[in-house]
Each structure stands twice: as structure tokens, then as C-alpha cells.
């Protein structure tokens, strides 16, 4: 009876059903040629298993993965930053090359100038919503905050092509002022990038922002 290589390999790998495996082992036991062929499959498997080394110490990525765990739901109202779950911050910080300040060189805007549609979005677009700008870019409102003096601040992103601009603006005497802006480039681009890299977090810390406002709080502030 002819036994092919694949069947012998499946025997070596424990992939045959027990009855078939027993039957084959009996055949192999009385045939040295079959034993030699089976040996090559058993031996390659045994040697390759040696490559399964135990690592020393914890992997450097472990801490970052733990840091991306979504915390247990708090008993507070949901924050108004629905499109920024904490893991996005990790994904963004890992995947995004920050091109740095100076976004106006890229966008053609004046440093503290907002396009009319951006001003309209700052005044009325709820967090978590996306609006298309005249330029064809998309503006996604991320979240609203209060700064240390109680002024309203809002974080948003505009994206066009593979560049994403992230902006933090605060309302000062009724006029919007830009407090932070950076352009990031998506690298690989499966998820929404750019919303959580270190520098925007630093900017939020610098203005003394507490946690994001809830959607209800935000709605009440925007109505004023």
C-alpha cells in the first residue's frame, strides 16, 4: 500500500484521527523505509520546536498595551469625546509621525486665522460630529474642555489627503484663539490618527483643562 508524504507528516504532527494513526503506526513498524520517511517529519518538527524560546523579561510593548486598556465605565455622564477612545491615543502615538507646528505653511492659513466654516463648527458643532469644509477637508470635532479660567476650549481635527491637522482653540472674550496646532501624517492609515499624540495632551495640560465636558454640558455652553 502506497503512503504519501503528506499522510506521514500528518501522522508526525498528530493531525490524523486515532484509528487511522494506529493503523499507520502498525504499517510503519514493519517497514524500515516508511520509518525513515516518517523520521524526517518527526525530526524537523522536534528541531523547529527548539526555536520556541522562552523570552527573558517582559516585552517592551507590554506597558504600552496595558496603557491602552479602556477603563471601567465611570458613574459620570459620558464625556463629549465619543470619537476618541483611549486606545486611539496609543495607535496614534505609535503610528503617526508628527510633522510638528507650522501647519499654516501647509494649509495656507494665517497662524491664528480660522476659516469661516471652522468658526461655525467651533460655535455649534457637537463633539463626535463631522462636517465637510469648503476646502473639501473634513472637520471632526473631538471634545470640549474648560481651561483653568473657565473659558471654553475645543479640540478638533481637519483631514485632507493623508495629512491630519489637530487644533486646540479657546474662546477668549467671545473670540476664538488658537492654542495649539500640529499636522500629523498617517502611516499605514487604517484607523483615525492624530487625535492623541503627546503634544496635544501637553497643550491641554498647559491650559489647565480638566476632563472633557459631557454632551449635555457642552450643549448648554454652546447655546449661550
Amino acid at each position: 500500500m502506497q503512503i504519501d508524504d503528506e499522510t506521514l507528516m500528518a501522522l508526525a504532527d498528530g493531525e490524523l484521527d486515532p484509528a487511522r494513526a494506529d493503523e499507520l503506526r502498525r504499517l510503519v513498524a514493519r517497514d524500515p523505509a516508511l520509518q525513515a520517511r516518517l523520521h524526517r517529519f518527526e525530526e524537523t518538527r522536534r528541531l523547529l520546536a527548539g526555536l520556541r524560546l522562552a523570552p527573558e523579561g517582559e516585552d517592551p510593548l507590554a506597558a504600552m498595551i496595558r496603557g491602552a486598556v479602556t477603563p471601567e465605565a465611570p458613574a459620570l455622564p459620558p464625556p463629549a469625546n465619543l470619537n476618541r477612545p483611549p486606545w486611539v491615543a496609543l495607535a496614534a502615538s505609535l503610528a503617526v509621525a508628527v510633522l510638528g507646528l507650522g501647519w499654516w505653511q501647509w494649509s495656507g492659513r494665517a497662524p491664528d486665522g480660522f476659516a469661516p466654516a471652522e468658526l461655525a463648527a467651533l460655535d455649534g458643532l457637537p463633539s463626535g460630529e463631522v462636517r465637510r469644509l469648503e476646502s473639501g477637508e473634513e472637520l471632526a470635532m473631538i471634545a470640549s474642555f474648560r481651561d483653568g479660567d473657565g473659558a471654553l476650549c475645543r479640540e478638533y481635527e481637519t483631514s485632507g489627503g493623508d495629512l491630519v491637522r489637530v487644533v486646540l482653540a479657546c474662546r477668549d472674550d467671545g473670540a476664538w484663539q488658537q492654542r495649539f496646532a500640529a499636522v500629523t501624517k498617517a502611516d499605514g492609515g487604517e484607523y483615525r490618527p492624530a487625535s492623541g499624540e503627546g503634544s496635544i495632551d501637553e497643550a491641554l495640560a498647559a491650559i489647565g483643562a480638566q476632563g472633557p465636558l459631557s454632551l449635555e454640558e457642552e450643549e448648554a455652553v454652546l447655546r449661550k
Binding site: 510593548l61 486606545w87 505609535l94 499605514g188 487604517e190
Partner: peptide, 12 residues
């Protein structure tokens, strides 16, 4: 590995 971890987290 890094890209895989990012994609796994994003696709959890």
C-alpha cells in the same frame, strides 16, 4: 510587531 499590535488594538 508594533504595526500588528496597533492593528490588533484598533480591531479588538
Amino acid at each position: 510587531v508594533q504595526i500588528t499590535v496597533e492593528r490588533a488594538i484598533a480591531g479588538a
